[in-house]
Design a protein around this nucleic acid. Sequence first.
DNA 1: GGACGCCGGACTGTTGACACTCAAACCCTT
DNA 2: AAGGGTTTGAGTGTCAACAGTCCGGCGTCC
Lengths: 220, 220
Amino acid sequence: MTRTLLREEVYSRLLDAIVDGTFAPGEQLRDTDLAHWLGVSRTPVREALLRLGEAGLVRSAPGRSTHVAHLDPDVVRDAQAVVSAMHRLAVAEAVSRLTADDLAEMREANDRFAAALLLGDVDAALRADDDFHAVPVRASGNRAVEKVLAQFGPVVRRLERLRFTSQAGRASIDLHQRLLDLCAVADAEGAAQVSFETWQTLRPMLDDATRADSPEGRNC
Amino acid sequence: MTRTLLREEVYSRLLDAIVDGTFAPGEQLRDTDLAHWLGVSRTPVREALLRLGEAGLVRSAPGRSTHVAHLDPDVVRDAQAVVSAMHRLAVAEAVSRLTADDLAEMREANDRFAAALLLGDVDAALRADDDFHAVPVRASGNRAVEKVLAQFGPVVRRLERLRFTSQAGRASIDLHQRLLDLCAVADAEGAAQVSFETWQTLRPMLDDATRADSPEGRNC
DNA sequence: GGACGCCGGACTGTTGACACTCAAACCCTT
DNA sequence: AAGGGTTTGAGTGTCAACAGTCCGGCGTCC
């Protein structure tokens, strides 16, 4: 049984709090406060914050302060482009390895996604979407892709939680179905392209983001 | 003037030592020894090692030991696929933004690359190659791409230093030239595809790696 | 001679405290 | 009232030391 380190637990909790909005964009994070809140010393908190900083979820001014990153449209757009490219790569590498069970798992996740949209349950919809896309990522066996997605995925998810629309969701159902169909006939290039397009459905959310959260222009 | 932190200096020095082979694959790294060697306390060393671990350049067993990662062909292949995809994305986003100065800078770097190959100067060749590919990455303005390349680029470079051949280098000159030509006529898709292919020239090195450094099969 | 259990050392994880930097606030002078 | 200089507090960077885990070696028993 692998050992769970405090810095991993702290990282997960801080990540969740940032993505779900418990920590608001711009909110100051003091590592001494977080240490007290989590009941640990500063070191695991510092280590977790460093990782969050690498993903762009927090911004630190050395020796000064740390803040939850604003939803800077440039930052999110950059992360979204990286996430799209990683999923396309994963799909291209996975298509020849996907089993019937994998495809069934993707169908089931897409069905859950559609059902969640009907209920207006954003959290369930995003979980189903995660489950859907996780299948080819896992099948690709590319650990570097997994690491990049673990790092930049939350940056994109954070926007989705705030800007999710049923309209974009419904477009995703169809794209998910096309992706499934192309995987089923082992069309790696077609599937990779559709995977990329699936993640382009986020672009309208990014355009909306320029009218939210950072009224004084961009952080530099 | 931005402040330089010890953990950044330590990270750079450890990264260089791993990529250039000063720290051999498999070599044990004790953070107390590294702290003494670098004249700092363990904290910046630990923080640097965590980052190196995320890139796959070191492997830590929690509470046990830390080692320089072997040249595991799977790890390098994964990183190489990610690096290829990032450069392709960067080129696709950069093509419409490249100036005449940018193109001139790329030509100059390709010329230096060719000259270094003639002299058999691997270090100079790799520096020129870095300079060449840095231009579209910078022009793309995508900070997330820069971060991913900073993280996984050294994993790929590490193999190149050991397995570099003039033959592969000469193939790169032509691909560089094709990439330049396609950028000059603003063919984003063509340029992106050639950029991707440029990084595929590493594949023969990966196949050779299975006969080096990890005779007992893979680390798991 | 082999297997099992215990102990100690190696090494990392975490802790609490000190050091340093930066910016805001306050005070003094013009 | 404004500007400049000094002081102080906030917050992070780094330090030294303690805690905990894991594995190898040694001793004992069968």
